[in-house]
Simulated assay, not measured.
Amino acid sequence: MDKVMSDKRMIALYVIPSLLLILAIIYLPIVLTGYYGLMEWDGISKMTFIGLDNYATLLQDEKFWSSVNHSLLFAVLSAVFLIVYMAVALVLAGRIRGANLFRKIYLIPMLLSSVAIAQLWLKIYHPTTGILNDLLASLGFKNTPEWLADPSVVLGALFVPILWQYAGFYILIYYAAFKNIPGSLVEAARIDGASSLQIALRIKVPLIAEVIKVTIVLAVVGSLKYFDLIYVMTDGGPNGASEVMASYMYHKAFRGFDFGYGSAIGFFLLLICLVATWGIRKLTATKDSIQYS
């Protein structure tokens, strides 16, 4: 093994194919997206170089900035609800009866595709036959809302299935992190007179700080580029009230046949995700990390 690792040609033989694959799958599409953003192109005819015109138009496009606001709202709410997932994981990581059953239940949405989840919630939100409006009517509500057709409530209605879909994923991550904390630390704090709340806030949560940073990045970036469930449930409607950056890019490129402008939106979305990731890392940066064994 040492002989292989000291042979530079052998190292290159193993590394170069992986590098080429990464370049072809990740970096080349990024470069091409930025390049197409400089063009006027309908996807079929010859491309025409127009410089930064697409990006200049993007900065003045009110519909695009409305979609940015919707995506940012989803991102902020997703990050805030990580607190709820963490609280659930804390409870499950404790010695409670049925914890294993609840973990399996929370993971069920992860086994379903986004299209299946969208179809399920379309039935739930149906204005006349949906179970949600039937429940509200049985409680005495006369004017039940049209959840996916009312611009004032459609974003909230979409956010609920998104939360439901990814709850198990984040709960499982936090659960594993909490279970990895040595029991001796918790027992020592309990002997010193710390309450369960103090142990959770002052010992357990600080010890998984690095895991929390990762989940914040995953939640924010994932929300910024979210597309499939929104596309199936509302297609960005009504009248753009649930349009997000990814769906707006799709509409411009594949329905409006303006692939140059769609590419500019995609490249701008990439920049926003990079800035968001950098900002989160800066805001959550600490000089010292807590170590335990």
Rank of each mutant, 00 (worst) to 15 (best):
T129W: 04
T129I: 12
I131F: 09
L132N: 03
N133E: 05
N133M: 04
D134R: 07
L135H: 00
L135K: 00
L136T: 05
S138T: 02
S138Q: 11
L139S: 04
L139I: 09
F141W: 14
K142L: 07
K142P: 00
N143F: 06
T144F: 03
W147N: 03
A149F: 13
D150N: 15
P151A: 10
S152D: 15
V153N: 04
V154S: 08
G156C: 09
A157G: 09
L158W: 07
F159M: 14
Q165R: 15
Y166A: 02
G168W: 07
G168V: 09
I171W: 07
I171Q: 07
I171C: 10
I173P: 00
I173L: 14
Y174T: 13
K179F: 01
N180F: 01
P182M: 08
I191Q: 05
A194Y: 11
S196V: 13
L197K: 06
Q198Y: 13
Q198S: 14
I199G: 02
A200W: 12
A200G: 05
L201H: 12
R202E: 13
I203R: 02
I203N: 03
K204G: 03
K204T: 14
V205D: 01
P206C: 11
P206T: 10
I208P: 01
I208A: 02
A209C: 00
K213G: 02
K213W: 01
T215R: 03
L218G: 00
L218Y: 11
V221I: 14
G222V: 07
G222F: 10
K225N: 09
Y226S: 03
F227I: 03
D228S: 07
L229W: 03
I230L: 13
Y231I: 02
V232R: 03
V232A: 09
M233L: 14
D235C: 00
D235F: 10
G236C: 07
G236D: 03
